[in-house]
């Protein structure tokens, strides 16, 4: 399932500051996106895709924002653009993110995604989108489940 929201969704609307004093997973999952869409946490399922417009994840540098989304079950976020700290944090905690400048994806659209190639087919609208290419090191970090796990495995960055 895909859930689409608008532009400039800030980290407080992803997970409010008052819930982010810890990385406690149950608290994060309980309150994810609650101000933006109070029904989200009850309808989201494992493997769902979150869609957004411009500047998704602006505001705080809290890593709990992408973490809350990941814990909710969402396996991919597609946005027209991401706030840079959110983008970086997503990679660092192992949440796949794709930047597609002019996507046409709306709530409920059925997608087919090739993450490595960054190709997203919107089966409902019969359109295909190519995401901005991601450097290899970022894909590697994602595949290892995040930056800390990546560093534990390799001991260093491979740039």
């Amino acid at each position: 399932m895909t859930y689409a929201y608008g532009d400039n969704i800030d980290t407080d609307r992803i997970i409010a500051g008052k819930y982010t004093k810890t990385l406690d997973f149950s608290t994060l999952a309980e309150h994810v996106l609650e101000d933006l869409d109070p029904t989200f946490k009850s309808k989201v399922q494992k493997g769902d895709t979150l869609i957004a417009g411009q500047n998704f994840g602006c505001g705080s540098s809290r890593e709990q924002a992408p973490l809350a989304i990941k814990i909710s079950g969402v396996s991919l976020v597609i946005a027209k653009s991401f706030a840079r700290i959110f983008f970086r944090n997503s990679i660092n905690i192992g949440l796949p993110v794709l930047e597609i400048k002019d996507h046409d994806i709306e709530s409920g659209d059925e997608l087919k995604v090739d993450l490595e190639k960054g190709i997203v087919m919107n089966l409902s609208k019969k359109t295909t989108h190519q995401a901005a290419p991601m450097p290899k090191v970022m894909i590697d970090i994602l595949q290892e489940g995040g930056l800390v796990l990546y560093l534990k495995k390799y001991g260093n960055y491979q740039i």
């Binding site: 990385l23 505001g59 705080s60 540098s61 809290r62 890593e63 700290i85 970086r88 944090n89 660092n92 905690i93 995040g146 930056l147 800390v148 560093l151 260093n156």
Partner: peptide, 28 residues
């Protein structure tokens, strides 16, 4: 914290990160 951009006032690159990046930088 996101407002680490403040450090640019003295001609430094100040960058906001979160837990994972800071932990890795503390180590390396």
């Amino acid at each position: 914290d996101s407002h680490a951009n403040t450090y640019g006032a003295v001609g430094a690159v100040g960058n906001a990160v979160s837990v994972s990046d800071a932990a890795v930088a503390m180590a390396t």
